[in-house]
Nucleic acid binder design. Structure first.
Lengths: 157, 157
DNA sequence: CGTCCTGCTGCACATGTTGACCAGTGGATG
DNA sequence: CATCCACTGGTCAACATGTGCAGCAGGACG
């Protein structure tokens, strides 16, 4: 279930230089091409690697403002709130968390003024009792996985 | 700067079927291969598409627990805290937000018990005054970008 | 001890893809 | 009108991919 050292090196290589192919990866890793192919297949059917989707920057799409919102939900309205929020494109992710019927979501907007529109749309729904929003100013550590992969690979050395 | 409708369709196509190549994409979109190549190049140098890194699932790596932590930082300790947190592999992202010297991070851990170790490591640092953590129970909307791309593409129809 | 199984290697082949070109077309712009 | 730009559709050589195969090492098992 966990990954071994070769898997780790393969993932790191792909993360650093996504455009290299299986053949080039096998050369870099010093193993046969078939091995890399087999490892990749296994990592993908394992679910360790979900895919190779394009990494799109919302800011470059015209949505430079990011915010996180904590939502307090009315008892029993969870499912409806999820449906509502999944229909809002500016809601990039949604989690239910420990706490009093709390949910938590990541929002983007075209500007601080536009964020008000997004928040209105998010909270303009019956099941939501209260929302508190924190606007992101800086992102010192962008979403990353490499250090974790390194650690996971070392744990199985 | 924004994307047009063809860009939108290209990104959506790549997001849904990442393994198709430029040639196949051009067939699906009904345009010449050179056009797709040029668009892709432009999207990447624009920064709209940051890359095609492997999408790794922390849960499959053995880190099934996700949590969000709000950190209150001592005045003037921001830079040190960033350095400290960027050295913790379980910190997947870090933001500075509006609020009283607040930061905000996403954590993963091997278990609820292991989360305690991670949190101890995160807050075991002088510049951090207080931390409050919310454990994720469900993730009804996983991090997504497609609806936003669709909206951005429609805005330029 | 012998056998099975798994994972890796090294090789080969047909096919598909890439990156690079180029001439030609059509719409928008100054 | 002349120019620019993006797109088309085509060709080319180089390369990568999926596939199949035989061989080999190491561990597990009866």
């Amino acid at each position: 279930m966990a990954i071994d050292h070769l898997d780790g090196r393969l993932i790191l290589l792909l993360a650093r230089e996504p455009r290299i192919g299986v053949l080039e990866a096998s050369r870099r890793l010093g193993v046969a091409r078939g091995t890399v192919q087999a490892r990749l297949d296994r990592l993908q059917s394992n679910g360790v690697i979900r895919g190779f989707g394009p990494d799109v920057d919302p800011a470059a799409l015209g949505y430079p403002v990011t915010a996180f919102a904590t939502l307090e939900i009315k008892q029993g309205q969870g499912a409806d709130v999820r449906t509502h929020l999944s229909g809002v494109p500016e809601v990039l992710e949604l989690h239910t968390t420990t706490g009093h019927g709390d949910m938590f979501c990541r929002l983007v907007a075209r500007s601080n003024a536009d964020l008000q529109r997004v928040i209105d749309r998010v909270v303009g729904f019956d099941g939501i009792v209260r929302a508190s929003t924190a606007i992101v100013m800086e992102n010192p550590v962008p979403l990353r996985i490499i250090p974790l992969v390194e650690q996971a690979a070392e744990d199985t050395d």
